[in-house]
Design a protein around this nucleic acid. Sequence first.
RNA 1: GUGCCUGUAGCUCAGCUGGAUAGAGCGUUGGACUCCGGAUCCAAAGGUCGGAGGUUCGAAUCCUCUCAGGCACGCCA
Length: 645
Amino acid sequence: MIKLKDALKKEILARVKERHTLDETEFEITATPQQSFGDLSLTFPFKLAKRLRANPRQVAQDLLPLFSGLEGVKTAEVAGPGYINLFLDRDAFFRTALGSLGRTSLYPEYHKVIIEHTNINPNKAAHIGHLRNACLGDTLARCLRHKGEKVEVQNYIDDTGVQVVDVVFGFMDLERKTLADLDSVGQKFDYYCWDLYARTAAYLEAHPESQIRKAEILKNIEHGRDPEAGMSQAVSRRIIRAHLKTMERIDVGYELLPCESSILGLKFWEKAFALLKEKDAIQLSREGENAGCWVMRLADAKEKEKVIVRSDGTVTYVGKDIAYQLWKFGLLGRDFFYEPFARNGAKTLWITTTERRPAAPAFGSASRVYNVIDSRQAYLQKIVAQGLRVLGFEAQAANSIHFFYEMVALSPRSLKELNYEVSENEKDRSFLEVSGRKGLGVKADDLLDRLETKALAEVEKRNPELSPELRASISRAIACGALRYFMLKFARNSLIVFDFEEALSFEGETGPYLQYTFVRLNSIFQKLSDRAGVGNAELEKLLREDPTLLDRLPENEGRDFWDLVLYAAQFEEHVLHSVYSLEFSHLAKFTFNLCQKTNAYYHLYSILGEGNLDLRNIRIMTVFYIREILRTALSLMGIPLPEKM
RNA sequence: GUGCCUGUAGCUCAGCUGGAUAGAGCGUUGGACUCCGGAUCCAAAGGUCGGAGGUUCGAAUCCUCUCAGGCACGCCA
């Protein structure tokens, strides 16, 4: 469809330009609101009419003769106040569509793309907010790869930050545990830390004097002094493994885990600092409240300045992030060392280290970078991009994309279900923000467990004959599909007020609905093979044959067939639109709509029961086409394709 | 205070680079073949697109004002 539209645009523009001046931007091809109007709609007569001070309908009418003999177009007509609507050659269109299955018409635009997502502080279990981040980031990665981009996914690990320090404080000072004691933590380690972190945060708030000890821990960790350094290393590594395991449940993976400890250890900041000073991108503030700090002045808010280096000489989070961002573009002039951290099948997940190691793949040096971070950090991300800009890296700054999205919050009903005591000033709020400090949130594994339990009950009811292993694996697939669709269906600017009932639903606009549609289509092919002897060989033969039989379809069926196929053929445009707008709810809605149309079609037109072979063959090809589009669409969203469910 | 975001059906949300009659899901009500899977399908009811101006052939979409809610603006990360 993209190719057809491009070709039509080019040809029509050329023809129109012989008579009128028309800019490319004034020309667009859109869908018609209903099938009887035609298949594609052109609005440029309105633009022309404005310049010519003429009636748009008359302009369209005058241009109509230009539309004869267009490749792929059967007829054209003027409609409404001045649209030109095109009716496509359905046989040719369907033949081309079938022939292009399995090949994308999209193409890469960048040398290399880095996506940073997940980025959970390694001091507690992952929660639903992190799931939204990971689902968005992973879907972006899948779509870009589908498009042909070379993608490197990084999950940044803040293993030396204050959040880890808090948990180390909890273990060492509150629980008097040693490194060896960590092994004897009985329950899930990330869950244990979830509670410990909340407990420690409360303790630290109630005991301000313990800040001295906290500062000491932070310092020892930064300088690699035991026992604090060893403790933080052990805690963060163990939590990272827990996070990876959680993310594996929804089929989210990474290429590299860049650690803050490596950024500190390899003195990335010092290098970045030197660059920034050299280009006069940051200044030493001599008076006022920021006296003694190195600050960056903001381009659009002159009176404001952001502290990059504190008066005690330590660097802030933003400073480290600027260094990291420079490295991502290969602009820092310094690199990490790498070692394998985990293996997933044939794929190795690498982690950064400060010590020289044998050869590793080349990481970093991208030409485009997406940072998947919630919108509360928009201000900081702006400063990071500006850091690149003032260093003279204009192109890289423009290719530093903050992929922002709204947070996930909790509905009053969810709070009740979590047995959370709502405080006085939280009482009249319609939602509450997830907070690790308060220990308030829905843990990712808990949610997935509940989804799996619910799915399993359904599978056992419907498919009692399957083996327990198969039933379990189907339940996992359904849980994953439900979660991933849930996280994608909302526009990224939409704050998700999390509600269990809604998230645990398997009916209507949900992941399992999409999976179910796919499973049913598969089931048709299974039965075609079992009962009617139409196996893969016969299918291929059918697809290779000339399917120019559409005029044999009765009127109603022809209409429904075309409605479905024309919609499905827009798949790649929706992928591209989603990637450009970073709005994967488009892709989600498109796939959902496609499933709705498919289910309706399937309901009306029987395949196995159809005696007329012409009709049956067209239906087989139609359903085959839809199934393949659906297969790709679901896999781009990371929604698993169960065999049965 | 400054900046950004949001306001669309009872609820949750699409639609926003202007385009033909504003769409889904849930919920409610009623219905579905001797059927390829009822996690499905069909239908009904439900709308001053927060409000007021403006721009024009055309506004949920763009502009101005306004009301309501959210977020950000640390020598935290």
